[in-house]
Amino acid sequence: MRAYSPKQDVQKKSYYNDRFHVVPHLPRLNVEADEQFLSDIDVLKQKFTVLEAYIENGHLVVWIPAKENLKAVKFLKEKLAYDMMMELSAIDYIASKGGFDIFYEMLSLSKHKRIRVKCFIEEKEELFSVESVFKMANWSEREMYDMYGVKVKNHHNLKRILMPDDWYDHPLRKTYPLQGDETAAWYEVDKIFGKEARDTIGPEIRDGAAIDRYDTTRFARLGHEVPFGVDITDGKEPEHTPLAYQEEGGVGLFGVRIIKELDENKSVQLKKRR
């Protein structure tokens, strides 16, 4: 029996861990540390349920329930002058928390401040689309669906955007291996030649250190190129090809030589252009 390997998070993990090392947390400041953020949070708290709010690395991070994402984003744009949305995506916490952390990264041009609105949704829960407020969400939510499988309601075109339309599974989930599963490995062969060609073409070589024993015969050395497949293992190579990389013997047409053969010993380096 082979050993059991957990499939919940198949990303690369560190092999050695120092069991006495305690990792610090990035410092989180109270919202009172910045007046602009304080006034924004006070206005927000009157309208929405703010689960948590703190300042991390110069950003105000606001946690709200997932049902209020559209209203909160709209409010931030219209009343609090956060008029650009820079990024929107999901973080996969299915193994630890059972869902995704969705974040909306917004920027205020007039106030020079950034805010991150975060909410938590279960794995199969659906979000409201913020496309009506910011058009950039059109493509960002498609990318989120493509990469994580987060479904978005009221989106006019929720299709895959980065992967091919008939791709199986959502690549950025933690359960998806970096090198892809079986359908991914044979995708291009199946698509172009059909499943029958899997044997002719052979599996992908994902090993970075793979050495083919035919490499010596098939690949050229600079200045000593030989035709494809010629056996040179016992040191018997054809005579030295001139560095001029020209047709050996020059080009002849019906016995008459029309291009001279270059002899590198007779070449002259010009000191000055004529």
Binding site: P171, L178, Q179, G180, D181, A184, E188, V189, E204, I205
Partner: peptide, 18 residues
């Protein structure tokens, strides 16, 4: 040639597969 540094799910490992 071989897929290069992108040893990932979306890269064809070498154009000579095609």
């Amino acid at each position: 040639n071989t897929g290069g540094m992108f040893n990932t799910y979306a890269t064809v490992q070498g154009a000579d597969r095609v």
